[in-house]
Design a binder for these strands. Sequence first.
DNA 1: CCTGATGCGTC
DNA 2: GTCGGAC
DNA 3: GTCCGACGACGCATCAGG
Length: 608
Amino acid sequence: MDFETLVTYYERISSTKKRLEILDIFSQLFSYIRDNPDKTDEGDLEKIIYLTQGTLYAEISEQPKLGLAEKTLKDLLSSYYAVNSSTVDSIMKKTGDLGETAAKLAGSKKKQGQITAFMGIQKETLYIKDIYDRLTEIANISGTKSLDKKFDKLRWLLARSSPLSVKYLMRIINSSLRVGVSDATIMDGLAVAFLDDKNYRTLIEKAYNIYPDLGYIGKKIHKEGLNGLKSVQIQIGVPIRMMLASRLDYTQILDKIGGECVSEYKLDGERLQIHKSGENVGLFSRRLKNISEQYPDVQYVIANNISADKVILEGEAVAMDVMFETMLPFQVLTTRRRKYDIQEFVKKIPVCLFLFDLLYLEKNGEKIPVMNKSMLERRKYLEEITTESKELRVVMQKPIHTTDELVEFFNEARAKNCEGIMNKSVDPIESIYKAGNRGFLWIKLKSLEAGKMKDSIDVVPIGAYMGKGKRSNRYGAFLVAVFNEENEKYEFLTRVATGFSDDDLEEFWNMLQPTLSESRPTNVVCNTEKPDVWFNPSAVIEIVGDELTISNKADAGKFYNGQVREKGYSVRFPVFQRLRSDKNIIDCTKVDELVDFYQLQPSSEDLI
DNA sequence: CCTGATGCGTC
DNA sequence: GTCGGAC
DNA sequence: GTCCGACGACGCATCAGG
């Protein structure tokens, strides 16, 4: 199948937002493959699935990534189409899409004519396998001059591609097709095209959840039909898609979860799925990457303190102080996520693994289908097979019957440096491990929002970036500042981009036009960001966040008590709340208050 | 040889 | 991670 | 409720370029 044909499907899908129409067109693509083996290459289906996901391989694959994204691709475009980078930038700002930008440049006939004539390239058909193979080659290039080599190959592709193909080629390389098709639609498409019934999506999803590679699943369905699907089994070494939690206001949790639940601390570390087979231990991340090498200490403790032949466990790895007494913030743990000097960091930043679930168990030759057992049953098995130590614990659980108990437990968790609590259904039938699902069997509580106990910050917009995709022609993200009374300047705190409705965005666009500034205003401190536009401080908006962080990037608080410090303050998970038209810019949050906030945080570490 | 820019993956 | 919009 | 795609701070790895 040629790439141009594929791109035509993408283009048709782009024209609608209706889910059913998208599915209809997308499944036609699969049906075409099904009905035209003579016109398709072996492996086309698999490749189309990956390309549609904006990637070359499944997430569980350990193959290299392309190593190209927006900034680098913009350089490519300006060099290939022989235009200034500012020209590329201005088209980008207008279209809000790298693919559209590339297509515009490719469509400018003069350039196209010049280049093709100069290079003497015949118009030729590019097949999906050609594109895929080239991209794979590009992904495998590394070392000195690798970018030049990657660009060479990309030029080869660009020279042979129509503007429309260029558009999607760029989007694929930039890992986002932006047509409204993602995993769920791909599975629906497979069900419709190859199994003649959308309801088979359930079965496909079941297989995908235990073998998270849609290319593989697709191929299997294509070749073997339903039987192929049914042959997919849990395997030690193949990660299972993780079960996720919903989030609810604390007043609604007990109702939703069935009147009672069991709660656990929500630890602020890294989630690990652990596969053990004899002495072999594999570790997988939330996004199913194999990260075994990053925690040799965890591998060791699992190998020696879990009594089961084969087992799949889940837990949270948390950085600890050297005495294993207090849990350290996430920011500390991240310095351990590394490729080099691992042994050194194992000693410097020890980790405790807090186990909280069991997904597979084979003991004394007996296979126990644990995933479909209730949470409390799984928990019982988990406790049975683990020998606890300071590096390996089973996370503490507390039965909860009333909202008062819930709040009390939440406050206790916060006092111990936890993000909050996880509340789990105890339903004897329903509370199975639902792989890949975000339901209400697990409900997280991170703040008592309804009680207004969460601190908000009043900040001043000082700049913005143009939005992309559905945010095009609006600001997509705002730079926001806090006032420093010592130097009387507005210092950059964080970007905010979430929490805005479309109406908010439109309102802000209009409201901020009169405050646009040619360059960074003199009363604004912002050393790291280069926004598309600057604003003279004029408005106050309220934002909230999970916590303050110590930042190498932010300027807020760098100038404090007459001293200049290396680091400033920023915000983890910033969210826009509302415009404070009742406030003057001088009434925004001050650096002093920020410092106080930070010190009041339970997990406040000496990171500054 | 060092530094800044960029990508990628964690939350 | 958070969130809003369309279905 | 589901699905998708806007976008956050951070830290490490890698590579280009001075």
